[in-house]
Design a protein around this nucleic acid. Structure first.
Lengths: 193, 193
DNA sequence: CGTCTATTTGAATGTACTCAAAAGCGGTGG
DNA sequence: CCACCGCTTTTGAGTACATTCAAATAGACG
């Protein structure tokens, strides 16, 4: 049941049985149907989620009502509108499901209490944010320096197998190009082989 | 002498006199001449810096030797190659001075010791990274959704006064456009008024 | 099977780039 | 103090990358 998430904690910190117990006691579970919204921009992000199965996306809806995917979160990803969650203020981003998805999550209050009971978690989540910071920094770097075609390749390498699971329009939005143009890139690519 | 940096700490945590004493005892000072490199990609980022005066930039040099500025750091900014610093591994980014610059800094070992002596600092730097994460997230969002002209406006609002201090080629690099194109944008802008 | 949405294709357009030349500006040395 | 050098910015012409709009095709789902 909790295999994936315990392995995930183990990547950065080691918890003894008692600590595992405490952590799991606060853990909640939820299923989100495909295309359902988990967090809507403007609401406070009440929980921090771990994806056990399926795939979520974080996106921004701009003034023209266009959606821009800033992150895909398949199995093993943690996600929240970080600022909204940690400051309990209205969210800027929306979170929705691309597939039927299972998540585990902590509420804000429970996580605060866990930080006291299991201080190692502070370290865990600090590393998590640091990794996210790093991911975004590299993403900005490649957005600045690389054409769409290479960014598409990068996406394929960073999310192995995900391309088969989600629609091209979402990938295009993530890359910052139109679905039409992504279609052209792919056509060009496959004609070469 | 230490006014700016103490105020900066005070934005997120409150330190008593003894804690201030401990923190300041580890603080080092350095001046970096204009166009001098402070950290070179490939070297380990030994310190985390606070800009007291002047302006630094973090950039990436790509395969074609082109430079891409990912962040400007004028007065009051903290900076490091975060991953390189916190894991003591070779840096991906380079840090250099755009003006004659004064920095305060902590070495890795000193900061680790300070975390033990003044645990509040863990919180301070966690918030700092979180703010950085947030900044980058919004930057990606606007890169995806906004044309160069609007990104330029955003830059001007986010770094008030900085435009007058650094060259257009660096701003262009930050925005992900060529200096030539930035020149056109500005021309168009000022013709309207 | 029919409806709705996603993808492909094509044509016309716009955004941003390269290359090249000229003008501006800043620092250095005579 | 000014003349010169190197670097940055501007300007213009031609080009490439990416978009919009529209229509046709393909896929997904009840």
């Amino acid at each position: 049941m909790h295999g994936l998430i315990l392995d995930n904690f183990a990547m950065h910190i080691s918890l003894n049985d008692e600590e595992k117990e405490r952590v799991l006691s606060k853990l909640q579970y939820k299923e989100i149907g495909k295309n359902t919204t988990l967090l809507k921009a403007g609401k406070v992000c009440a929980n921090i989620y771990f994806v056990n199965k399926g795939c979520l996306r974080i996106f921004h809806k701009d003034a023209e009502n266009a959606e821009h995917n800033i992150l895909f979160c398949p199995e093993n990803w943690w996600l929240a509108d970080i600022v909204s969650f940690s400051e309990q203020t209205p969210a800027f981003y929306t979170i929705a499901a691309l597939e039927n998805t299972e998540v585990f999550y902590f509420s804000y209050a429970d996580l605060e209490q866990l930080y006291v009971e299991v201080p190692k978690l502070e370290r865990f989540f600090r590393i998590l944010i640091q990794n996210g910071f790093n991911l975004y920094q590299h993403r900005i770097t490649s957005n600045l320096s690389k054409p769409a075609e290479e960014r598409y390749e990068l996406f394929r390498r960073q999310y192995p197998g995900l391309e088969q699971r989600i629609s091209q329009k979402h990938i295009a939005s993530y890359l910052g190009i139109t679905p039409v143009f992504l279609s052209l890139i792919r056509k060009k690519k496959y004609q070469k082989h």
